[in-house]
Structures are given as structure tokens and as C-alpha cells.
């Protein structure tokens, strides 16, 4: 279970608080206006920004002292999820060993992961030779290999068209299901939340609300969400 215990992030006058828990295996969409702090929340969980107060806990363990790579987290950023100078296989292989010294078994794992996301033949290509959707699949293959219990996605499919984005979201849900990972996705689009998620964390007005069932929140949206959705 992921717990944000009286977490507080500040940047000048700006601040964000969160005091909530996400059960293991949940699929949660973080929605809210831009600048509300959705990405900041992910950065705090992934270890890129240190909280100004409060704690981030995974299964009761405080993550404060852990570097990003030591946390139980795979993260997909908005962009720059692949190194352009490395092949698709190498980019995936980094998920197993940061120095890329892979043994035969690990190389087979890389192949299998690429095959799982439908890129069996494209391992030798560099990101420049891949389409946007293919590049996203490579990043997902790496997340699949890393087998971290927490998958964080910071609008990684923002540049893709609606159909492709829906396809990628389905793949993410499948992969999270296979690894048993808890899924947190930042999105602007309420449809993304409806598509993937069991729950929604609404981030607005300096506060991340505790997760609520997706169907429930869209059936009875609180006033702030209504204002955000503009319906």
C-alpha cells in the first residue's frame, strides 16, 4: 500500500498537501488542472523531489532515504523516456542492469519483454527510427522487466493521437495486471481516467484528495471537478 502521510510540497507561495493511501494493485488516475501539482506528487513518490514535510511510505516503510533507483517504482515521464543513442533492446536492458552488462538469460528476458509489447523485430532500432507509439511500447517493456510494485505514468502518451493513446492505456493496464503493480497515471483527460482506472485522485486548490471510485466521482462530481470539467 502507498501512503502519503501529511505530505507537503512547497515552491515559493505555491504548495500542495496530500494525506491519503492507495491500496496495492489499485489503478488510480490523477486528474486536475495544470499546475495543480499532479507531476510534483509523482516526483515526490519517485524520489526526484524531497517533501518539505510529511512522509512517503510503501507498505509502511518510509522512502525518504532512498534514491530514485532504490524505490519500488518504475516511472514513465512525459518525454525523454528513451536514450536516443541506445537501441530499443539496450533501452529495455537498462531496466535489468544500468551498466548493460547482460548475460544470456537477461538478453532473453529483454527479447521476451519486447515481444510482449509487440516489438519483437525492432530491438535493434534506435528511438529515432521508431514511431511515437513504438517508443512508448519500448518504455513499457522496460517497466515490465523492472517488475517494480509501483508504476507511475506522468502523461507519457500526451503526444499520441486518441486511438493510439487508448491502445497504450489498455496495454499499461494489462502489464500492471500481469506484474500486480499499483498504477498511478497523471492525465488531463477524464476519458483516460474512465478508460483505465478504478479510482481517481483529484488534485486541485493545493490539495490532493483521497482516491474515490471513478464511476462514483463522475456520477456525482464535487463542485471543483465540475468546474474543471466544464460540464
Amino acid at each position: 500500500m502507498l501512503t502519503l502521510d501529511h505530505l507537503e510540497m512547497r515552491w515559493g507561495d505555491w504548495r500542495l498537501t496530500a494525506n491519503l493511501s492507495v491500496p496495492t494493485g489499485a489503478r488510480v488516475a490523477l486528474i486536475g488542472p495544470s499546475g495543480a501539482g499532479k507531476s510534483t506528487l509523482l516526483a515526490a513518490i519517485a524520489g526526484f523531489q524531497m517533501p518539505d514535510a510529511g512522509r512517503v511510505l510503501w507498505d509502511g516503510e518510509d522512502l525518504a532515504r532512498k534514491a530514485p533507483a532504490e524505490r519500488p517504482v518504475s516511472i514513465l515521464f512525459q518525454d525523454n523516456n528513451l536514450f536516443p543513442h541506445l537501441t530499443a533492446s539496450q533501452n529495455v536492458g537498462l531496466g535489468l542492469r544500468p551498466d548493460l552488462k547482460l548475460n544470456a538469460e537477461q538478453r532473453a528476458q529483454v527479447k521476451a519483454a519486447l515481444a510482449r509489447v509487440g516489438l519483437a523485430d525492432l530491438g535493434a532500432r534506435k528511438p529515432g527510427q521508431l514511431s511515437g507509439g513504438q517508443a512508448a511500447r519500448v518504455a513499457l517493456a522496460r517497466a515490465l522487466l523492472r517488475q517494480r510494485p509501483l508504476m507511475l505514468l506522468d502523461e507519457p502518451f500526451g503526444a499520441l493521437g486518441p486511438a493510439l493513446r487508448a491502445e497504450m492505456l489498455d496495454l499499461v493496464v494489462e502489464i500492471a495486471g500481469e506484474t500486480g503493480a499499483t498504477l498511478l497515471i497523471v492525465s488531463h483527460d477524464p476519458d483516460d481516467a474512465k478508460r483505465i482506472a478504478g479510482q481517481v485522485i483529484f488534485v486541485e486548490g493545493g490539495k490532493a484528495q483521497p482516491p474515490v471510485g471513478t464511476a462514483e466521482i463522475f456520477a456525482h462530481p464535487p463542485p471543483a471537478l465540475t468546474a474543471y470539467l466544464g460540464t
Binding site: A67, F83, L86, P98, D99
Partner: peptide
């Protein structure tokens, strides 16, 4: 951030990034 999240430090960061 990507390199940090993958634990690419020291020699790995130098030679691979």
C-alpha cells in the same frame, strides 16, 4: 531523471549517457 530512476550512476552514467 530517467538515468536516476534506472540507477545509472558512476561509470554507467559516464559511458552510457
Amino acid at each position: 531523471p530517467l538515468a536516476d530512476s534506472l540507477g545509472m550512476t558512476g561509470a554507467a552514467r559516464l559511458t552510457r549517457l
